[in-house]
Design a protein around this nucleic acid. Structure first.
Lengths: 193, 193
DNA sequence: CATTTTCTGTACCCAAAGGTCAATTACCGA
DNA sequence: TCGGTAATTGACCTTTGGGTACAGAAAATG
C-alpha cells in the first residue's frame, strides 16, 4: 500500500554504480547522484538512506555483474586452458582501454581509495579478489589435469600471480596511453606459464 | 629581506606528502594540512598557492625519495640478479605490511584516484612507472649478460611484467589481512623466471 | 469516497572545503 | 633606529557537502 515508487531502485543502483565507478566514492556528490538517477534528493535519501549505503549497494552490484562476468568468462569451456587465459586477459585489457572514461576496475579503485577507511567496502573487495583468485586457481588445476600445465606447479601460487596481474593491469589501464605495455605484460605472463 | 619563514618548506612538503599518501588527494582537507604542518592556513596558501600545487610538490617528492629508493635498491650490486629481485620484492611487501596505515604506494593510489581528472599527476605517475619498468628491464638484461637468465627471453616484456607485479602487490597491500597471498605471488613470479 | 501509507519535491540546515584579506609582526640593510 | 619587505595570524567569505523536515501527491484498503 502507499504510493508506489516512480523509479526502479535496481536501475537507480545501476546508474549510481556507473557514477561511483567513474568518480570514486569521495568525489561523488549527492548532486551527481541526483543528476544521474533523475530523481529528487528526497527520494534518494528516502530510498537509500545515505550516500554510503548507496555506495555499498553499488559495489555489491558491481560484484554481481562485472566481477561475476570475469569468473564466468574463465569458467567457460571450449578452448584450451591457456587459450582461455589469453582471451580473458586480452578481453579485459581491450575493454578497459575502450572505456572512454578509463575507469579501470571499481574494486581495485575502491581498494586504493577506501582501504582502512571503510571496512565494509574493504571486505567486499577482498571477497571479489578471493573469488577471482579461486577462478584462476581452478583454471590452472584444470590445465594440470588435462596435461596442459606441469602438475608440479603450485596452482595456488599461480592463481595469486594471475589475480595480482589483473589488478596491476587494471590500475595501468587508467593511465596507460596505449595498449603496448599491457600487451607485453600479458605476453610475458603467458610465456612463463 | 623581509620576515623570514618560520618553517622549512621542504619539511612542510614532506609532512604534506605523508598526509596525501595516507588520505589521498580528495580526502585531504586544508585543515588536515594545517594540523600536520603546524602552520597557519595563511602561511600555507601564501607559500604553496593551493592544495593542488602542494599535492604536486608532494608527489614529486614521493618520486624523488620513495620511488627512487626502489630503483636504487634494484641497481645495487652484490647478489645475483634473481636474489636482488627476490630481496627487492620481499622488502617492498614487508614494508607495505609493516606500515600501520597500509598506505601502499602513493603513485598507485594516485593513478586509481586521479587518472583522467588530473593530467599533471597522471603524467608524474607515468614517469615513475616508466622509470621502475626500466630498472627491472635493466636488471633482466644484466641477468642475461651474466648467463643467469636465458638470453632468448624478452627483457622488455619481463620488465613490464615485474612492474605490473609490484603495482598489483601494492594495491593488495592496502587490503590484505596477511602476507600469505603476497608471498605466494612473489614465489610464483620468481619461480617462473 | 475517506483513510492510511508511502513516495516526491522543495526548502532548509549546519559544517566544512578551499581560499582571501587586513592587520600585525619580525627581520634586513642603510 | 628606522623603513621596506615579506611572513603570519585569524577573521571572514562563498559554495558545496551531506542530509533533514515538511507539505503535498498518489496509490491500496475499506
Amino acid at each position: 500500500m502507499g504510493r508506489p515508487k516512480q523509479f526502479d531502485p535496481e536501475t537507480a543502483v545501476e546508474q549510481a554504480m556507473q557514477v561511483f565507478w567513474r568518480k570514486g566514492y569521495g568525489c561523488t556528490t549527492p548532486q551527481d547522484l541526483v543528476d544521474a538517477l533523475g530523481i529528487g534528493k528526497g527520494s534518494l535519501y528516502n530510498t537509500f538512506g545515505s550516500k554510503h549505503a548507496l555506495f555499498e549497494l553499488s559495489l555489491r552490484r558491481y560484484r554481481d555483474t562485472q566481477a561475476k562476468a570475469l569468473t564466468d568468462l574463465l569458467a567457460e569451456g571450449g578452448d584450451s586452458v591457456k587459450e582461455r587465459l589469453r582471451k580473458g586477459l586480452e578481453l579485459l585489457v581491450d575493454m578497459d582501454l575502450a572505456d572512454p572514461d578509463r575507469r579501470g576496475c571499481m574494486a581495485v579503485n575502491t581498494a586504493a581509495e577506501l582501504a582502512r577507511a571503510d571496512e565494509t567496502a574493504t571486505e567486499l573487495v577482498r571477497g571479489m579478489f578471493a573469488r577471482t583468485e579461486g577462478s584462476f586457481r581452478a583454471l590452472i588445476e584444470e590445465g594440470q589435469r588435462s596435461g596442459e600445465i606441469a602438475p608440479d606447479r603450485d596452482a595456488a601460487a599461480i592463481g595469486s600471480l594471475l589475480l595480482n596481474t589483473i589488478i596491476g593491469l587494471r590500475v595501468t589501464a587508467r593511465i596507460a596511453d596505449g595498449p603496448d605495455g599491457m600487451r607485453r605484460t600479458i605476453r610475458a605472463v603467458l610465456d612463463l606459464l
